[in-house]
Deep mutational scan, measured.
Amino acid sequence: EVHFESHGEEQAMRVVKMLKKRNLTVEVKVENNKWIITAK
């Protein structure tokens, strides 16, 4: 499981795309203006 924190939507979306290319399940949450990305 991979956790990634991002402060910007643009950066977060880039990471999500990259993770999805690896056929991982990606969950995105926004907490306290931080984008929290979890990949399994």
Rank of each mutant, 00 (worst) to 15 (best):
E1V: 13
V2M: 12
V2P: 02
V2C: 15
V2F: 14
H3R: 14
H3W: 12
H3F: 11
H3G: 04
H3D: 03
F4P: 03
F4W: 11
F4R: 05
F4V: 05
F4H: 04
E5C: 14
E5M: 09
E5F: 10
E5D: 04
E5Y: 10
E5S: 07
S6Q: 06
S6V: 15
S6R: 12
H7C: 15
H7Q: 10
H7R: 09
H7I: 10
H7E: 13
H7P: 09
G8P: 03
G8I: 14
G8K: 12
E9H: 11
E9M: 12
E9I: 13
E9C: 15
E9Q: 09
E9V: 10
E9N: 04
E10Q: 08
E10P: 03
E10G: 05
E10L: 13
E10N: 06
E10R: 10
Q11E: 14
Q11I: 10
Q11A: 13
Q11G: 07
A12I: 08
A12H: 03
A12W: 09
M13W: 06
M13A: 07
M13L: 07
R14Q: 09
R14Y: 05
R14F: 05
R14N: 10
V15S: 01
V15T: 06
V15M: 10
V15I: 15
V15G: 01
V16D: 04
V16Y: 03
K17Y: 06
K17T: 09
M18N: 10
L19N: 03
L19R: 01
K20I: 12
K20L: 14
K20H: 06
K21W: 13
K21V: 09
K21R: 09
K21H: 08
K21I: 09
R22C: 15
R22P: 02
R22K: 11
N23K: 10
N23L: 09
N23Y: 15
N23P: 00
N23Q: 07
N23M: 10
L24Q: 02
L24P: 01
L24G: 01
T25W: 11
T25A: 09
V26P: 02
V26D: 00
E27M: 10
E27A: 06
E27S: 12
E27H: 11
E27K: 06
V28A: 01
V28W: 08
V28K: 00
V28Q: 00
K29R: 13
K29H: 09
K29T: 08
V30W: 13
V30F: 14
V30P: 01
V30H: 09
V30C: 14
E31M: 08
E31L: 08
E31I: 14
E31W: 06
N32I: 03
N32P: 02
N32R: 02
N33F: 07
N33R: 02
N33V: 02
K34Q: 06
K34S: 05
K34T: 08
K34V: 12
K34H: 09
K34C: 08
W35F: 07
W35A: 00
W35S: 00
W35T: 01
I36T: 04
I36H: 05
I36L: 07
I37W: 00
I37P: 01
I37D: 00
T38K: 05
T38V: 10
A39P: 01
A39T: 06
A39M: 08
K40Y: 13
K40E: 04
K40H: 13
K40F: 12
K40N: 07
